[in-house]
Design a protein around this nucleic acid. Structure first.
Length: 354
DNA sequence: AACCCGGGGGA
DNA sequence: TCCCCAGGGTT
């Protein structure tokens, strides 16, 4: 289609058909905009909503967040995934609080330098908070533009991103960039949806290349397929006077800064008898112990499939083999951030065995 | 450029 | 099951 009319059609749809409501819509406070945008990275609005409210309630200003205890912030983030976002959130809060005296930077280039803020989030903050002419390019925008303009270039290559970025910047209404950016994302989320888009309600229907050529289901194009690795986690829960050993996950792996129990990991499914034998060798278990073995908890991550088994038992001593762990009561356990798999196990089994 | 990083919901 | 979601960082 002719790109000259694009923003007029979009904004007319926005004014007459769009009734999507969200708490940060029309927000001008850059702290709140930044927070909502980081929470929503690769995350559905419905999923992120209660996290947004919790954060605003606990940390009304960027300085409150900067001064918060890191563990408490992670606890608030627990369950949302992509935990490096949380780490970067804290770092950027401190940067804004100290280096910028608590005032959010107001140019695209400076905003982009902050940790955890990439091209999308920088454009969102710049346009929503400061009315600067930068086009957002997220999953919605890739989909809308690839379909309406019939672009078969893959969206996950450097060349593709460059192409879509150039087009998006050209289409942007520079007079009202915030309104336009909000409108194109709402349009992608409610009309030009990934599956079963509402083409019969679409104002671009007569001009949409994908609609006319029957490419709605094939656009946008992605080139890469991701490989998924399977890992087997065997967790050990030795109860000593109602206490369990835990430690923070550090190092370059999934679930950084979340907590876990003593673990034996394998690449292949292993007989629990063998695993327990190994735990005995480690000094984690007495041969005479009578372990309770949980069913397999399966969790799919973007690049990994985790199969976890929990082995609980009682001990009479706090074995020195657990010297790198801290022993905590169930009450303290509640305050620590855990990955979803462990939370599920704790909720389903530990509580019921009291 | 390729790869890594969660968890939930829809089809 | 597979795909997608208001992406970004590291190697």
């Amino acid at each position: 289609m002719n790109y000259r009319n694009f923003d007029r059609i979009l904004l007319h749809w926005n004014q007459t058909q769009n009734n999507r409501q969200m708490p940060w819509k029309g927000e001008k406070n850059p702290y709140k905009i930044w927070l909502s945008e980081v929470i929503l990275q690769q995350t559905r609005v419905e999923q992120g909503l209660r996290y947004y409210h919790n954060f605003i309630e606990n940390y009304p200003t960027v300085t409150d967040l900067a001064n918060a205890e890191e563990k408490k912030v992670f606890k608030l983030w627990e369950g949302l995934g992509y935990y490096s976002r949380c780490k970067n959130l804290i770092q950027t809060a401190k940067t804004v609080s100290t280096e910028f005296n608590g005032k959010f930077p107001d140019t695209y280039e400076v905003i982009l330098k902050l940790k955890g803020i990439g091209p999308y989030t920088a454009a969102a903050i710049a346009s929503f908070a400061f009315d600067l002419p930068h086009a957002v390019i997220d999953g919605n925008v890739f989909r809308v533009l690839s379909r309406i303009f019939g672009i078969r270039e893959p969206i996950d290559t450097t060349a593709g991103k460059k192409l879509f970025t150039a087009l998006a910047e050209k289409l942007l209404d520079k007079e009202q960039p915030g309104l336009y950016n909000q409108a194109i994302m709402d349009f992608g989320a409610t009309v030009c949806k990934p599956s079963n888009p509402l083409c019969n309600k679409c104002p671009f229907r007569n001009k949409c290349v994908a609609f006319q050529k029957g490419l709605i289901e094939t656009l946008p194009v992605k080139s890469k397929k991701i490989a998924v690795r399977t890992r087997y986690f065997y967790y050990f829960l030795p109860a000593y006077r109602n206490q369990l050993p835990v430690r923070e996950r550090l190092g370059r792996d999934i679930w950084q800064h979340l907590y876990e129990f003593p673990i034996i990991e394998t690449d292949a499914e292993t007989d629990t008898g063998k695993i327990i034998k190994k735990a005995v060798q480690n000094g984690w278990m007495d041969k005479a112990a009578t372990p309770c073995i949980s069913p397999v908890f399966s969790q799919k991550l973007s690049h990994q499939l985790i199969k976890a088994v929990f082995i609980s038992y009682k001990t009479k001593t706090r074995d020195t083999a657990f010297k790198n762990y801290q022993w905590v009561t169930p009450a303290v356990l509640q305050t620590l951030p855990f990955p979803k798999t462990i939370t599920q196990y704790l909720n389903r089994f530990l509580a019921s065995r009291e």
